[in-house]
Write a protein that binds this DNA or RNA. Sequence first.
DNA 1: CGGTATCCTCATTGATACTG
DNA 2: CAGTATCAATGAGGATACCG
Lengths: 124, 124
Amino acid sequence: MSRASEDKDEECVASWCADDDWCTVTCTTHLIGKKWHPVIVHRLLEHGPLGFNALKEEIESISSTVLSNSLEDLEDNGLVNRAIVSEKPFRVEYSLTEQGTSLEPVIDAMDAWGEAYLRETSRS
Amino acid sequence: MSRASEDKDEECVASWCADDDWCTVTCTTHLIGKKWHPVIVHRLLEHGPLGFNALKEEIESISSTVLSNSLEDLEDNGLVNRAIVSEKPFRVEYSLTEQGTSLEPVIDAMDAWGEAYLRETSRS
DNA sequence: CGGTATCCTCATTGATACTG
DNA sequence: CAGTATCAATGAGGATACCG
């Protein structure tokens, strides 16, 4: 029952989102504002579909538990797709859905800004 | 001593940031990934300089404590400027620094994506 | 007005160990 | 390989009350 929680965010979206304009920003932060979410999306944008451990290697310093939880979260929100690509040697592949892929501008903007910020601050 | 913590992130930036590329995304999430940070920046981008309580009103449902902490955080990271504009009736104004203002593309992207996401999911 | 000081609760993170 | 189950530690978020 851990890999199915389709009941928690359908109405939640409506609840924490009033009709103001800032809710769109709040919405985004709720969906990808967790510590590792943007990084995961970034990785999938860069490398395409990845297996669980491959993804784990890419991110480095994330634990299985947290990666698992994060992926489930992203899956529930329709941003990431989980596909079983092989049964015998059991293999899965995580990839971005269309909605997940559409995050590219956001991630890119964050990427670019982070780079500029680091240049600014740690210029010695 | 609460309004001065200039020692905590100068080298911290270097510590959690290796030389990989993903650190730029991680960097951004560390700086504005907290729950209210993007909203605060969004508000300041929209309305320009605001006093403490004015900002609090704009955000709605944020407590003084959290707003205070968040602003201090943003200040420490050089994204927000705090100016005392009047002593007699004590008044301050929070505004974005240049670096804070440069977050506009990021916030805009989040804004746009959140809007699209909401359209997609809650289209009935 | 513009905050700070406490204190509390819950969420997130994570280490470790184990499973099919 | 691809996870899950537990449990411990931390920390963020927030209610309340009070101060200059």
